[in-house]
Design a protein around this nucleic acid. Structure first.
Length: 463
RNA sequence: GGCGACGUGGCCAAGUGGUUAAGGCAAGGGUCUGCAAAACCCUGAUCGCCGGUUCAAAUCCGGCCGUCGCCUCCA
């Protein structure tokens, strides 16, 4: 079955076809870098990381661009408050975000453009839009003329003049129409600015993404993604600018992830109810967040709380537990056949789910079913070879979701000492000195070393 | 007020017309174990409410209730 993707533009699932066979051009809106990133930002990045990984698994070459908005009102405000250079602030958070991308196991994008590196292209676009009457200048500002764009509103399904009365704050400006939005803003005292035909100024909010997508991916792209809070006005305006500029359709598929919610509200900087990526990673590893995010559909809002996090941490442990080595010797027979059948069935189910608009929750269900089969086979005495085959299917499929199941043996330096302790402990157990043996196990547990006794001896791992 | 999404067992969450409604977490019972842990087996939902369409609906339509998002910066 071909991949089906839900397209916000049509509000339907559509078969995924690329403009150029085998190649996907994907643009995802990145953060405005004026503060620490929270796990909502991580959610968006992880969702599109999985989209990319799955498309690559299916054989596509993916060109993935994620921008950093480093010229913006909030950064300027921060700069004025703190006295720091606005670019220093932006660069600090860009570096931090890139560190998070690495920590969260997100594949690096092909490109991370910044607004400040795209000024020339932006000015050129605005000029052309002005020449073609899609934009007009006014006192050093340039606005997009919404009335000129016949299908304006097609993404958000919003009709002009329908905005709630009184919502608009800025009524001061001399815009032709209340819906017109700034492409270029004239410099105000203390603000960074670049020279332009309209005088010194800086880009408006939406034009950067149009310019960066155009510059790095071309006039028409396959997938444009972001959080669903960007549908209006940001993405709507991107479409207006880009399509008015090129005369072509901008993006084929618009994908939007749902919001991460904390205490029933969207997690956002302005609401102040946020958990930063650093906060999260201080307590849990990245795969827990990824599992949590992928356990529900990307378009739905996701409730975040301590219980859900703890549940997913345990679920991750179960996934990993399936990779424990075989203890038996059966290399063939009904159990082996059933195991291998389960592995290929898991792959089929996984692909069917993922083909259907990246149904990661359904795909995970298939993975857990395989976990059960693997554990059952191990208990039934299946030998290393067939077990390992099913295990590598599991690890491979989990890897498409970006889940790292094979962890690097933590605590390698301590290993000889732990082994020594466990060796002594097994002597104590053999001598039925259980009180002492249990004390060793408990003390190790307190230190984060989980000890498990099996028929073949004791194993340990760091938690 | 406009646009949109969602409401499935204790919690999280797939499934969107037709076999016994996936899966995870938690809980209870059992197997294994010196004990524990892990693992395995067993146990639970008729799908917000009301009405309609249909031979057949969690799944389509209408109404109601509830929650959330966007309409202002936002992943």
């Amino acid at each position: 079955m071909a991949i089906q993707i839900y397209n916000t533009l049509t509000r339907r699932k559509e078969p995924f076809e690329t403009i150029e066979p085998g190649k996907v051009r994907m643009y995802v809106c990145g953060p405005t870098v004026y503060d620490k990133a929270h796990i909502g930002h991580a959610m968006s990045a992880i969702v599109f990381d999985v989209v990319r990984r799955y498309l690559e698994y299916k054989g596509y070459h993916v060109e993935h661009v994620m921008n950093f908005t480093d010229v913006d009102d909030k950064i300027i405000r921060r700069s004025i408050e703190s006295g720091d250079d606005p670019f220093a602030i932006a660069n600090r958070y860009i570096d931090e975000f890139k560190r998070h991308i690495d920590e969260l196991g997100i594949l690096p994008a092909t490109n991370y453009p910044q607004v400040s590196d795209t000024i020339g292209e932006i000015v050129g676009m605005v000029q052309t839009l002005q020449e073609t009457r899609y934009a007009y200048a006014m006192n050093g500002d340039v606005y997009f003329r919404v009335r000129q764009d016949e299908d304006y509103g097609k993404l958000s399904r919003r009709k002009l003049d329908e905005a709630m009365a009184g919502t608009r704050v800025e009524s001061d400006e001399a815009k032709e129409n209340i819906n017109d939005f700034a492409l270029w803003k004239s410099q105000k005292p203390g603000e960074p600015a670049w020279p332009s035909p309209w005088g010194p100024g800086r880009p408006g909010w939406h034009i950067e993404c149009s310019a960066m997508a155009l510059k790095h991916l071309g006039e028409e792209i396959d997938i444009h993604g972001g959080g669903n809070d960007l549908i209006f006005p940001h993405h709507e305006n991107e479409i207006a600018q880009s399509e008015s500029y090129t005369g072509r359709s901008f993006a084929r598929f618009w994908m939007h992830n749902g919001m991460l919610q904390l205490k029933g509200e969207k997690m956002s900087k302005s609401l102040g109810n946020l958990v930063t990526v650093d906060d999260f990673l201080a307590d849990y590893e990245a795969s827990v967040l990824r599992l949590l995010i992928l356990s529900s559909h990307y378009r739905k809002p996701l409730a975040y709380n301590d219980t859900v996090v703890a549940d997913n941490a345990r679920a991750l442990a179960r996934l990993r537990g399936a990779l424990r080595p075989a203890t038996g010797t059966a290399a063939s027979g009904a159990v082996v056949d059933a195991l291998l059948a389960a592995a290929s069935q898991a792959r089929r189910g996984f692909e069917d789910a993922m083909d259907d608009d990246f149904n990661t929750a359904g795909a995970l269900g298939c993975l857990f079913e395989l976990v059960t089969e693997i554990n059952r086979a191990r208990d039934a005495g299946v030998a290393t070879e067939p077990l390992a085959e099913a295990q590598s299917t599991l690890a491979e499929l989990a890897g498409i979701l970006g889940l790292q199941l094979r962890t690097e043996a933590a605590g390698a330096e301590a290993a000889p000492f732990i082994d020594l302790l466990l060796e002594m402990r097994s002597k104590l157990r053999a001598a039925k000195q259980f009180a002492l043996a249990d004390e060793i196990r408990n003390r190790l547990t307190d230190l984060g070393v989980v000890v498990e006794d099996t028929r073949e001896g004791s194993t340990w791992r760091i938690e």
